[in-house]
């Protein structure tokens, strides 16, 4: 358990997200009928300052919708989100308030090929964040950019580069540096290492644990990969079809999973001596 004295970085209570899908008229002959999907169904959790929580699940589990609500890209249908003890409101949010929220929660997306502006050098990308969020003169910004690049294992040569000149791993480092630029309380990693080659993935995972030791940042780690989650999280939340099916300390959940779905996820990971087995029920799941 996190020390009770540690203040909560994020607290989420009974969060719900319902998407309305409108069926286009004509196809199928019927009249347009609204169909709703409950992507996130009454999910609650909290992350103490400096701790790391992993949200685990397969596609359609609602884990990415949860992340998008936490960072403010999606408005919850119901429920509360508090960051640093302050309740989020969803009406009449001005640009000043948006910027303040951005300084609290930042996100690193899965695909570093589409999450960076191709017409902006790495240095300008970081400079823009600093100008937007802080009152710093040029010299201090330059200094800070150098420090940020060093923190993620890049150097000043990379500041002049455009994303197209960088490898996938380097781009993801830039995305992490950009997120760290405004010194957030919470860093959300939405499958941030999933598209990286295994040798690069290890580097970025090591980098993320270094950053946690150096700063007091909290992680909300969204992932489908239980091996990655074991490496980076203290606690774990297993989601399926929008609901939490199991939660607890990472080591406890992965060593001794209580829920059958968590057990199935673990059993499906290739490892020495493993052999793939068809699950007679799974056709119902995938259809």
């Amino acid at each position: 358990m996190p020390e009770p004295a540690a203040p909560l970085a994020v607290e989420v209570r009974d969060l719900v997200k319902v998407f309305r899908l409108r069926r286009s008229p004509g196809i199928g002959g019927g009249r347009s009928a609204a169909k709703t999907i409950v992507a996130v169904d009454r999910v609650s959790f909290s992350v103490a300052q400096g701790r790391s929580l992993a949200v685990v699940g397969e596609s359609g589990s609602g884990k990415t919708t949860l992340a998008r609500m936490a960072v403010g890209l999606e408005r919850p249908t119901a429920g509360q989100i508090a960051v640093g003890g302050r309740e989020r409101r969803w009406k009449h949010v001005g640009s000043r308030e948006r910027r303040r929220r951005a300084r609290e929660v930042q996100i690193v997306f899965q695909d570093p090929y589409s999450s960076l502006d191709p017409r902006q050098t790495v240095g300008r990308c970081l400079d823009e964040m600093l100008r937007l969020h802080f009152d710093m003169d040029h010299a201090r910004r330059t200094e800070r950019i150098a420090a940020l690049l060093e923190q993620v294992g890049l150097d000043e040569r990379h500041a002049a580069a455009y994303p197209r000149a960088l490898s996938g791993g380097q781009r993801q480092r830039v995305a992490i540096a950009r997120a760290l630029a405004c010194e957030p309380r919470v860093l959300i990693c939405d499958e941030a290492v999933a598209s990286l080659d295994v040798s690069i993935q290890a580097q970025v995972l090591n980098l993320l644990s270094d950053i946690r030791e150096e700063t007091a940042v909290s992680y909300l780690f969204i992932s489908h990969d239980l091996a990655v989650v074991r490496q980076v999280s203290d606690e774990i939340l297993v989601m399926k079809d929008g609901r939490v099916v199991e939660r607890g300390q990472t080591d406890r959940v992965l060593d001794d999973p209580a829920d059958p779905y968590t057990q199935r996820l673990l059993a499906a990971i290739p490892r020495p001596g493993w052999h793939p087995v068809a699950d007679p029920e799974s056709d119902l799941v995938t259809s």
Binding site: G169, D197, S209, A227, V228, R230, Q231, L254, R271
Partner: peptide, 24 residues
């Protein structure tokens, strides 16, 4: 050997992953 060592394991946490330096 590097490929095998750099992949995290679901059964135990490594103090630090043995990343292969550089990029492919």
């Amino acid at each position: 050997a590097g490929l095998l060592a750099s992949r995290p394991s679901a059964t135990r946490r490594a103090a630090r992953l043995a990343a292969i330096p550089g990029r492919p």
